Amino acid sequence: TRVETATETAWISLVTALHLVLGLSAVLGLLLLRWQFPAHYRRLRHALW
């Protein structure tokens, strides 16, 4: 049971790290898009909202 718990903890930390990385890359990508294509971003936002 001790090994299982350790594996579970490792998986949880791995998944958390993955989610953090994905979230950060998504935010960075959005910022980059907004910085590179302001007109396109505004049009996209206008279409979405």
Rank of each mutant, 00 (worst) to 15 (best):
H19P: 02
I12N: 06
H40R: 12
V3P: 01
V21P: 03
V15M: 13
T9F: 09
A10V: 09
A10M: 06
W11T: 05
L18C: 07
R2T: 15
V27M: 08
R2M: 14
R42T: 13
G23R: 02
L20D: 00
L33A: 08
G23T: 10
T16L: 13
L24F: 15
Y41F: 14
Y41R: 06
L44I: 15
S25C: 13
A47V: 11
E4M: 08
W11S: 03
T7V: 12
L31K: 00
V15S: 04
L32Y: 12
P38D: 10
R42S: 12
L32W: 11
W11L: 08
R42Q: 15
V15W: 08
W11F: 11
Q36L: 11
T16P: 02
Q36D: 00
V3T: 01
H19Y: 13
L48N: 01
H40I: 10
S25A: 14
L48M: 12
V3F: 02
A10K: 04
G29N: 02
F37E: 04
F37I: 09
P38L: 13
T5R: 00
E8L: 01
S13N: 07
T16F: 11
V21I: 10
V15N: 06
R45D: 03
V27E: 01
G29V: 14
A26S: 12
L22T: 07
S13Q: 10
I12L: 09
A10E: 11
L28C: 07
L30A: 11
V15P: 01
L18P: 06
R34S: 07
L30W: 09
T1S: 09
L33D: 00
T1M: 15
V3L: 08
V21T: 14
Y41V: 14
F37R: 05
T9S: 11
R2G: 08
L31H: 05
W35H: 06
L14P: 02
A17F: 08
V3H: 01
L20T: 07
L22C: 10
E8Q: 00
S25E: 00
R43C: 09
T7L: 07
L14Y: 03
L18E: 00
R34V: 09
R45Y: 06
L22K: 00
R45G: 06
A17R: 01
Y41A: 14
A6L: 04
S25I: 07
L28P: 00
L32G: 05
G29D: 03
A47T: 12
R43G: 10
A6S: 14
G29W: 08
V15I: 14
A47G: 09
L48I: 15
T9G: 12
W35G: 07
L28D: 01
H40S: 13
L44N: 00
T9H: 11
V21H: 03
R42Y: 15
T1Y: 10
T1E: 10
E4Q: 14
T9C: 04
A6W: 06
L31G: 04
F37V: 06
G29L: 15
W11G: 01
R43E: 08
F37P: 00
R2C: 09
T1A: 13
T7F: 05
V27P: 01
P38F: 09
S13P: 03
A6M: 12
P38Q: 14
E8T: 09
L22A: 12
T5Q: 00
T9L: 10
A47L: 10
V21D: 02
T5I: 00
V15F: 08
G23F: 11
T5M: 03
T1P: 04
H40A: 12
L44P: 02
L18W: 04
L14V: 10
L22V: 14
R45Q: 06
E8G: 02
R2F: 15
H46P: 05
T9P: 13
T9Y: 07
A26D: 01
L18H: 00
T16M: 09
S25F: 04
W35E: 06
T5V: 03
A39V: 14
T9I: 10
S13E: 03
Q36H: 15
L22Y: 04
T7Y: 10
F37Y: 12
T1I: 13
L20P: 04
S13G: 14
V15D: 02
L18S: 03
A17L: 11
S13M: 07
L18Q: 00
